[in-house]
């Protein structure tokens, strides 16, 4: 009887402890969002939100001050676009290779390598960009700024590549073998089966992986801070220095901007824009995945 009661109390204690742990992480997240919202609102008391969202000059630390966030969004989207151009085709190609072509032995080597690639600290990618990619670009396109969007895009593309390939491969592998057999039985080649059956059947998962990867590119900080420079401007030229939202936040956080000043609070407003963008993309990715979840079986 007593043993039973002790057991029951123990179970209860375990359950409550686990609940508390879960609660801590939920509360922390809520706290972060609250601070973000609060600081952002107080920023908008001084700078009209419309001016912030539509202005094309970003110069919070010069007089006269300008708080147009578009140059930072422009820089961020350039990096995301450039990274996507690199990572999406390469990612899907390597996913097709891994899921449909690779022999088990090859796969046993390539998959861990890709995963290691995903585990390298991003600052290392930043150095790789500055010390290797940038000189290479400057060799090919003379006159390229030492800090430039191209180099950062390439390195961020390499960084998100494992994510695209591994999530896409998961999606492709979950396509039932029976569909492949059906297609082979009609005289399809392996390439037909991969591109006309497997990829379309796994499309929702593949697109979800694209969105997640681009969201990651948007939020990427260290590599772009190092490689892309700190010049917030409206440009589409990949060989110039630009600034992304994340790089700006780093610049202010590390600089000597007085705490509590309006310049300082810009980072919360910029952070809020960043948060909204990545949040929407993550939701979209989840929605697409659930909405089009494999209807076969």
């Amino acid at each position: 009887m007593d043993r039973l009661r002790i057991q029951r109390i123990r179970e209860l204690a375990i359950e409550k402890t686990l609940f508390l742990c879960a609660l801590v992480s939920v509360l922390t997240t809520m706290g972060i969002v609250l601070v973000l919202v609060f600081e952002t609102l107080s920023f908008f008391e001084e700078v009209p939100i419309l001016e912030f969202l539509t202005g094309t000059t970003w110069a919070p630390s010069f007089r006269p001050q300008h708080f147009g966030v578009l140059p930072l969004i422009n820089g961020t989207l350039m990096i995301a676009l450039g990274a996507a151009v690199i990572a999406l085709p390469l990612g899907i190609a390597s996913a097709i290779y891994l899921s449909e072509y690779a022999k088990p032995g090859v796969k046993a080597v390539v998959k861990p390598v890709l995963e290691i690639l995903a585990g390298i600290p991003t600052v290392v990618y930043g150095y790789f960009a500055i010390s290797f990619i940038t000189p290479l670009i400057r060799e090919v396109v003379p006159g390229t700024n030492i800090f430039n969007a191209a180099s950062a895009s390439i390195v961020v593309g390499i960084m998100i590549l494992p994510m695209v390939s591994s999530l896409s491969e998961d999606a492709m592998r979950s396509v039932p073998g029976a569909l492949r057999e059906g297609a082979y039985a009609l005289g399809s080649t392996k390439f037909d089966v991969s591109t006309k059956i497997v990829v379309p059947a796994a499309l929702s998962g593949i697109i979800a992986s694209f969105i997640l990867a681009i969201s990651r590119a948007i939020g990427e900080t260290m590599a772009v801070t190092l490689a892309a420079g700190a010049t917030a401007k409206m440009t589409l030229n990949f060989f110039e220095s630009i600034q992304t939202m994340t790089a700006y936040i780093v610049q202010v956080s590390l600089g000597d901007t007085p705490y509590g000043s309006i310049e300082y609070r810009t980072i919360f407003a910029v952070g809020a824009v960043l948060f909204v963008m990545t949040f929407i993309m993550n939701i979209a990715s989840m929605w697409i995945k659930n909405r089009y979840r494999e209807v076969y079986t």
């Binding site: 039932p176 029976a178 569909l179 057999e181 059906g182 297609a183 039985a185 009609l186 059956i197 379309p200 059947a201 494999e294 209807v295 076969y296």
Partner: peptide, 11 residues
């Protein structure tokens, strides 16, 4: 040609 045990129409 081949027809399988479980119907396997393409999606």
């Amino acid at each position: 040609g081949m027809v399988f045990q479980k119907p396997n129409p393409f999606p």
